[in-house]
Design a protein around this nucleic acid. Sequence first.
DNA 1: GGCATTTTTGGGAGCGCTCTCACCAATGAG
DNA 2: CTCATTGGTGAGAGCGCTCCCAAAAATGCC
Lengths: 338, 338
Amino acid sequence: MTLKLEDIARIAGVSRSTVSRVVNDDPNVSEQTRQRVLEVIEEHNFTPNVAARSLVTQRTRMLGIYIPYLVGNLFSDPYFPMFIQATTARANDQDYDVMLWLKSSTITMDHLRRRVLDNRMADGLILASTPRNDRLTDLLLERGRTFILNGRPWEHEDSINYVDTSNVRGAQQAIEHLVRLGRRRIATVTGRIDLNSGYDRLIGYRRGLEEMGLELDSKLEADGDFTEVSGYLGMRKLLPEKPDAVFVASDHMAIGVLRAIREAGMTVPDDIAIVGFDDMPFATLANPQLTTVRQPVQRLGYLAAEGLIGLLENTITPPYQVSLPTQLVIRESCGFPA
Amino acid sequence: MTLKLEDIARIAGVSRSTVSRVVNDDPNVSEQTRQRVLEVIEEHNFTPNVAARSLVTQRTRMLGIYIPYLVGNLFSDPYFPMFIQATTARANDQDYDVMLWLKSSTITMDHLRRRVLDNRMADGLILASTPRNDRLTDLLLERGRTFILNGRPWEHEDSINYVDTSNVRGAQQAIEHLVRLGRRRIATVTGRIDLNSGYDRLIGYRRGLEEMGLELDSKLEADGDFTEVSGYLGMRKLLPEKPDAVFVASDHMAIGVLRAIREAGMTVPDDIAIVGFDDMPFATLANPQLTTVRQPVQRLGYLAAEGLIGLLENTITPPYQVSLPTQLVIRESCGFPA
DNA sequence: GGCATTTTTGGGAGCGCTCTCACCAATGAG
DNA sequence: CTCATTGGTGAGAGCGCTCCCAAAAATGCC
């Protein structure tokens, strides 16, 4: 038997309204009654019924996280766990709860629309890594719902809220480092170009070469899709071009690249230097240990929650746009002397 | 402007009650009116307000997942991502949504109690890896709430609902395999003994030796805590005992064990064979590749959601208790000929 | 055709809260 | 002493739904 506002009111000898004021920190309550009511609340472990509350306030104090799952990577990739962990921690701090939607084979767009859009179960949404042409973004925009993208959007870049890693700058860093170490024929295996992370890392690669005064050569660019096997295949295509270094748009692919190089009888970093991206946990397990570009994932998750709540409570005026710097983690595969 | 039941009723020329019946699949509606109402609902994209609904039904159609985070492992360990993914997929199938609570430094027990217990935001709960003496379990029991443990409970084993891996049997399998390969002095580095997974794997190790007719020797058991460094330290303690094989209660620790063996100038599997546990993504990256015991994580997550929903809807009578078999994944580190 | 019975529909109450408005002291100003 | 003003409080309506019960319509039976 759970108590309701009215019960607390009766026990404390005040009206329902007064208890409501106390619960909601309304200043118009005398200190004396406030104390009395708080005691009763404490004593009976009272918590206001969320359903009733949100029925009238039209708010749920819930944040939704939607991840259009790339099941493949997910399981060895701590990106989402880290992101989610930071997001929920920040949300809970502000007395918000978090709902999770993962795109899977079983959840249809229709389901999703109902749940995420129409239902209003969550006050606001955080969308992780939305591919180009994702319909959800448009629908959200259309209905005027509050949301934040994890990753720079493809369209409406100046009005949509987002938190992002400076992928361009990060890739550039990697290239600069390789050039400084004397490498001149620097190839790349790209990520999925329909994801902004993949796209931006390619842009950063090109910009890095240009700024260091090296020529672009499309034969030094192999298409990948963030999977290990695509790294392997990409590197096999690159090998005949005799690169002396390769910037790989993800650590996963870097493992494949490593394998291809080894199979060709060459060594890393002596023959070919490698720089990856993401700083996955296994980067230190590879042989040689992977030099890579680390993203501030937790910070991103934290800021996504903070920003979304700010937007919902009108303490932040949109657009809320954050781009955080990466960090080059130098290990062995780039050939930097220990 | 979102429509409500009443609006749909007006448009369709029926009463609010009738629309409610249609929405809730009540059979007492003539086929003709049902169709008409469905059309109007479809046309206007109507979805019943969840808050209003749960205010009267006292149900939210939400499942909560609570993970008392062991931040260390979490990020390289795909256990929780996989588990969560399977759980949400199953839940969404049944038209349930999922809320996520991760224990972090910022979330206090008090917060938690409010959120998870009193609030009734979720109809039921799934608790992942609860350590011995976790207060939450007792509180849930006390309040008569419906929940499922991921992992065999420490107490009330015959009444609490749970889904678990047969850790005992899995460890036993590993030992049997090593013995069959001719190993006789088989050591172990244990996991956290205050978690049932760690405890049960130790029991399985012992039982395995006994059943294969080998003597137990406490000097061959080193304490670990699932971290890599504890694996390293554990193996260093074990080395003077001259084991010819070691069963390591997690792949993380196995990496540390590998390092310790290599540092001692010995080789795996020739001098010492290794079998790990978990089949982490990096198990194939280790050199030599790790032989390990795989858990049916996704199946576990799936069954947790299914079971919980069944319990909530009274289609399953408690206790709901599931224990799934593991699978021995034979690679290189056990010395099995390729 | 008249009646009982079944199927289908509608109206009202109420879930537990917030929020507006009105009220009642108590206070101060004129 | 009267009248506005303030701080504190309570009553009432209403958020959008479900569920019970009664009414209406359709059906079956004699």
